[in-house]
Design a protein around this nucleic acid. Sequence first.
DNA 1: ACTCCGATTGTT
DNA 2: ACAATCGGAGTA
Length: 166
Amino acid sequence: MGDARTGGVIVETEAYLGPEDPASHAATQKGRTTRNAAMFGPPGRAYVYRIYGMHWCLNVVTGPSGQAQAVLLRGIEPLEGIDEMISRRGRAGDIASGPGRLCQALGVDGRLYGHDLRRPPLQILPGWRVPDPGVYVSGRVGVRAAADWPFRFCVRGSSGVSRPGA
DNA sequence: ACTCCGATTGTT
DNA sequence: ACAATCGGAGTA
């Protein structure tokens, strides 16, 4: 089966701002390009891009049109269609912890560029509140510029977090 | 046209 | 510690 519904709870995210954020694909020097165009579009859409020539990364555009703000989804804790996700990943461990793994597990690729995340085949649904003590903040992973900006949010103790910290 | 390198992952 | 792998972005 390659059509089983898959999904989980988002447990690790990273925020990226617009021109004022040197680590953002929308940084001033770069401006609007073909690749980051979705970032400048309306919120609630998917900004998908390829990294290192082999992995996909999924962002949720968050700022209003023109502001180019987005949130990178770095990890989910698998809930539905686990077998399908394991099949897509080709391994049982680390199913969807990490931006690349998350996309592979959910079957996300460039076809979803600009997709409206309120509707199938990929949607974000209401979850539940996590009390502040259950969340910790850290610097961003894998970036050179502004790596220390406290924009990474993780659910404490979750197995879906890619690089567990405090 | 050419070079550099990345919001990563898996293996050595 | 390092290879895999390639298109985007900058330079010319």
